[in-house]
């Protein structure tokens, strides 16, 4: 029962947050509402027993990504000054026939692909009455990261190092 309540709360948070993000006219508010979505996703992970993933979701998104997005939106001016000094809108309108057609086709293709992929799982699907007993995933994740998936782990760390060096180079004051 407790799992159900947690699931319903998280799901409502995700859906409400996402709708808020999509329908909000103010970019700053959209960013803040995205926080609700990300928290809801963390809750969904917790329901599934992925405790480490849930905590990572909080650390990475709530702590880092949202603040960086807020900074970026604030420094670029957000939606407040979307017209330039001649009164022409800098951001093009999104709601034209062309964009709707493209979006509709994309949704169709994606959903068909996903259905095709999921078909084999859905046919053999049996409803679980109880989730499996809760076990900590931290040990397993740690072991896997330094054994089976050590290559991916190291490559991603090199990628991040590259990003760090790049950021330092861009931010460095120019000489002369």
């Amino acid at each position: 029962m407790f799992q159900d309540i947690l699931f319903i709360c998280s799901a409502i948070l995700v859906i409400a947050g996402t709708l808020g993000v999509v329908f909000s006219k103010n970019l700053m508010r959209a960013c803040t509402l995205l926080l609700g979505t990300l928290f809801g996703v963390a809750g969904l992970y917790a329901v599934l027993g992925a405790d480490f993933l849930a905590a990572s979701q909080l650390v990475i998104y709530a702590g880092g990504v949202i603040i960086l997005m807020l900074f970026a939106v604030m420094l670029t001016g957000g939606s407040a000054d979307k017209a330039n000094k001649f009164g022409i809108e800098k951001i093009m309108g999104m709601g034209s026939v062309k964009t709707y057609v493209i979006a509709g086709l994309t949704v169709l293709v994606f959903s068909l692909t996903i259905m095709k992929l999921l078909a084999s799982f859905l046919k053999g699907y049996q409803k679980l009455d109880e989730l499996p007993a809760f076990t900590s995933t931290v040990d397993k994740i740690g072991t896997m990261l330094v054994t089976d998936h050590v290559l991916a782990f190291e490559i991603s760390s090199i990628l991040l190092l590259g990003a760090l060096v790049g950021a330092a180079v861009i931010a460095r004051p120019r000489r002369g």
Binding site: S56, L58, A62
Partner: peptide, 13 residues
């Protein structure tokens, strides 16, 4: 929690 410290770092942000 098994991930107590991690949770605290995340939520306090």
């Amino acid at each position: 929690l098994n991930v107590g410290v991690f949770f605290l770092v995340g939520i306090s942000s």
